[in-house]
């Protein structure tokens, strides 16, 4: 409860900060719309020449695009700005201020900066997902919906834990911001189901950079092609990564000596 109030506070600060720059909302809107053009335009061209792509029907890929925008939006709204600020703090020694606050440092660091205009991606994702779900229609029962929600949550947590572990490396290597850019360029490959990629690339997108768990897996839950093993595996991985990243964070924070004081 305390942490929800804390998050609400950061959200309010984020909103107040960004309301100063209202034009940024329109810019974000244009940017997200352009991203959507690329995603949907690509699908349109592909499906003008084929009925299915690696066994995926158009509406299933539309659901994948929806998931891609939803998770991508959350990354850009909270995870990326917060982690960027964290890495800056480590470099400049201002992380001391966060550490002295009477709350869990990992939580503080993870929600400390919210770029609300980036929520436009989420707003765009919802109608896309809704249209895909309606067109998939009849087959989708209550259980499928629950499975979808669980995989979406797990995928989000996996990405978060992964990003936290990468950022934690800043305690040792200081300059690691470039890792985020690498992640975002790999992320765009998640617009397509990972099953179409050749084995070596699929391995990279699944285990080296866990894009597959955040995009393909939830989308395959919607289209009813997820196996029980996949579902259990994804949830287990999410839990494991949460625990490992938490442990790694504590190791890192013990190593931190402060750069300013």
């Amino acid at each position: 409860m305390f942490y929800i109030r804390l998050f609400a506070t950061y959200l309010r600060i984020g909103i107040l900060g960004e309301l100063e720059y209202r034009a940024n909302f329109w810019i974000s809107l244009v940017q997200s719309a352009l991203d959507l053009c690329v995603a949907l335009g690509g699908l349109a061209v592909v499906f003008s020449h084929t009925d299915t792509l690696g066994g995926w029907r158009p509406e299933e890929l539309l659901a994948l695009v929806g998931v891609y925008f939803l998770i991508g939006g959350l990354i850009r709204t909270i995870i990326r700005p917060s982690m960027t600020k964290f890495m800056d703090d480590v470099r400049q020694g201002t992380l001391d201020f966060t550490l002295t606050k009477p709350a869990d440092s990992q939580v503080l660091v993870s929600i400390q900066s919210v770029e609300i205009w980036r929520l436009v991606d989420v707003l765009i994702a919802l109608p896309v997902l809704a249209i895909a779900l309606i067109r998939l229609g009849a087959q989708l029962g209550l259980i499928d919906t629950a499975v979808f929600a669980v995989t979406l949550l797990s995928g989000g947590l996996i990405i978060y834990s992964f990003w936290l572990m990468l950022s934690t490396c800043a305690f040792w290597f200081v300059k690691v911001e470039n890792i985020q850019v690498i992640f975002m360029s790999m992320w765009q490959a998640g617009r397509w189901p990972v099953s179409i990629y050749p084995a070596w690339l699929r391995a990279v997108l699944t285990f080296l950079v866990p894009v597959a768990f955040a995009t393909t897996v939830p989308a395959s839950a919607v289209s009813g092609r997820i196996t029980d093993a996949n579902l259990v595996g994804t949830v287990a991985l999410a839990v494991a990564m949460l625990i490992v990243s938490r442990w790694f964070w504590r190791v890192g924070i013990r190593f931190y000596s402060g750069a300013s004081a």
Partner: peptide, 28 residues
């Protein structure tokens, strides 16, 4: 490092479309 990162983006994008169209073509 910054140089390598620019490069990575330039490799991934065409690679992605290569895979997509190869899949479509094999299916057709």
């Amino acid at each position: 490092i910054a140089m390598l990162i620019w490069l990575l983006g330039g490799i991934i994008e065409p690679l992605m479309y290569l895979v997509v169209w190869r899949t479509v073509s094999q299916q057709q």
